[in-house]
C-alpha cells in the first residue's frame, strides 16, 4: 500500500486458534422471508431489564428474550407491509426501544419500535422520512441521520424521551458533500465524525452543531466506512473498513485500517492494515467494531475477527451448514458475536 503502513506479520490460517469462537446458542427464525440484520438490546420484562436479541427479516422485526440454558423465546414481532427493513439501528443507553431503517436501496423511513405501556401490544412510531443517506444511534439516547444531497443536505440529531418518542431535534451544519457514514468518538460524547463521498472525514461539535473540520484521507481506498474513533494525546485514531480494497501482494487483503489524524492540521497517515491471513481470499462485505475487536463478513462467505491491539486476525468462521454468513454484529449487552445467515438462522458465539 504505502510506505507509511506499519509492517505486520500475518499469521497463517492454520495457526489461528479455532477455539476462540465458541457456539453457545442458535435462533431459528421461521418467518420464511430473507433475514437482514441482528442486534442486542435491553428490554424490561416482568420488572427486570434483560439482554434481548432483535432479529430483522425483510418485513418482520422480532424481539427474543433469554430463557435458561441459552434458549430464546420470541416475545414481540413488528410487521411491515409496504417498505422492507434495511437495518436495525441500535441506540445505546435505551431500554424498551428498537429503531429500524426501512427502504429499498436507500433508507426511506426511520421508525421506533416499542410496546404499549401494559406490554400487551407492539407499537411503531415514524421518526423521520425522506431520502435518508446515513443513520447512527449515539450515546445518551440520541440518533443522528442525514438526508437530501449536497445543497439541501440536512443533518439532524434526535433525542429520545423515556417512552421512545422523539423529544427534541437539533440540526448540525451540513458539509458540502454527501455523508456516507457516521461514527462516535469514544470518550468524547460531544464529538461526531462523518465520512463523505469525497473521501473526507468531517467532525462536528454536537453541543453547538458546528462543523469543526473537513479532513481529507488517503485516496488509496475509495468509499471507506468509518467504524470507530478515539482521541489520544491530541490525535484522532480512526478505524476504517475498505469494501473496495484490492489484494496487495505483500500484505494480502486489507479489510480494516487504523489511521491517525491530527485534527488541528488535518494531516493523516496510516498506522496499521488489518489483512486476511495467508491463504484466505475475500473483500469486506459487512462488519462491526466494538472496543478493540473488529468482525467482518467477507465476500467469500467467511467471518473474520481481528484484535485491533494485537494487529492480526484471531478467528475465522467459515460458512456453517453450507450457508454463507451474511451479517455480523457484536452484542452491545455482553461480549458475544451475533452471526446471521440469509435464511434466518442466527448463531451466538462467545469470543
Amino acid at each position: 500500500h504505502s510506505a507509511e503502513q506499519t509492517e505486520i506479520e500475518v499469521p497463517a490460517w492454520d495457526s489461528l486458534n479455532p477455539g476462540t469462537l465458541q457456539l453457545v446458542s442458535k435462533l431459528k427464525n421461521p418467518s420464511g422471508s430473507c433475514s437482514v440484520d441482528v442486534s442486542a438490546t435491553w428490554w424490561e420484562i416482568a420488572g427486570f431489564k434483560q439482554p434481548c436479541i432483535v432479529t430483522a427479516c425483510e418485513y418482520v422485526v422480532s424481539l427474543w428474550k433469554p430463557l435458561d440454558a441459552w434458549q430464546w423465546e420470541k416475545i414481540y414481532s413488528w410487521h411491515f407491509t409496504e417498505v422492507p427493513v434495511l437495518q436495525i439501528v441500535a441506540v445505546p443507553d435505551v431500554c424498551n426501544l428498537v429503531c429500524v431503517a426501512l427502504g429499498n436501496l436507500e433508507i426511506r423511513e426511520i421508525r421506533a419500535l416499542l410496546c404499549s405501556p401494559d406490554g400487551k401490544s407492539e407499537k411503531q412510531v415514524l421518526l423521520s422520512s425522506g431520502n435518508i443517506k446515513a443513520v447512527l444511534g449515539l450515546a445518551k439516547r440520541r440518533l443522528v441521520s442525514s438526508s437530501g444531497t449536497l445543497c439541501d443536505q440536512q443533518v439532524e440529531i434526535m433525542t429520545f424521551a423515556e417512552d421512545g418518542g422523539s423529544k427534541e431535534k437539533q440540526l448540525l451544519m451540513p458539509p458540502e458533500e454527501t455523508i456516507l457514514t457516521f461514527a462516535e468518538v469514544q470518550g468524547m460524547q460531544e464529538a461526531l465524525l462523518g465520512t463523505t463521498i469525497m473521501n473526507n472525514i468531517v467532525i462536528w461539535n454536537l453541543k453547538t452543531g458546528q462543523l469543526l473540520k473537513k479532513m481529507h484521507i488517503d485516496d488509496s481506498y475509495q468509499a471507506s466506512v468509518c467504524h470507530k474513533a478515539y482521541s489520544e494525546m491530541g490525535l484522532l485514531f480512526v478505524v476504517l473498513s475498505h469494501p473496495c480494497a484490492k489484494e496487495n501482494e505483500l500484505l494480502g487483503s486489507p479489510v480494516f485500517q487504523l489511521i491517525v489524524i491530527n485534527p488541528k492540521t488535518a494531516l493523516s497517515m496510516g498506522v496499521m492494515l488489518y489483512c486476511l491471513p495467508h491463504g484466505q481470499a475475500g473483500r469486506f462485505l459487512e462488519g462491526d467494531v466494538k472496543d478493540h475487536f473488529a468482525a467482518a463478513v467477507l465476500t467469500s462467505g467467511t467471518i473474520a475477527v481481528w484484535d485491533l491491539l494485537l494487529g492480526h486476525c484471531t478467528a475465522l468462521l467459515p460458512p456453517v451448514s453450507g450457508q454463507n454468513w451474511s451479517f455480523v454484529k457484536w452484542s452491545g449487552t455482553d461480549s458475544h458475536l451475533l452471526a446471521g445467515q440469509k435464511d434466518g438462522n442466527i448463531f451466538v458465539y462467545r469470543y
Partner: peptide, 23 residues
C-alpha cells in the same frame, strides 16, 4: 509512523477548533 509528519499537536484540539469554527 512519525508523529512529526502530522504537524503541531494540541491536546485541546476540540475546544480550539470549536472556538475557531463558524457558529
Amino acid at each position: 509512523c512519525n508523529k512529526a509528519d502530522l504537524g503541531p499537536i494540541s491536546l485541546n484540539w476540540f475546544e480550539e477548533l470549536s472556538s475557531e469554527a463558524p457558529p
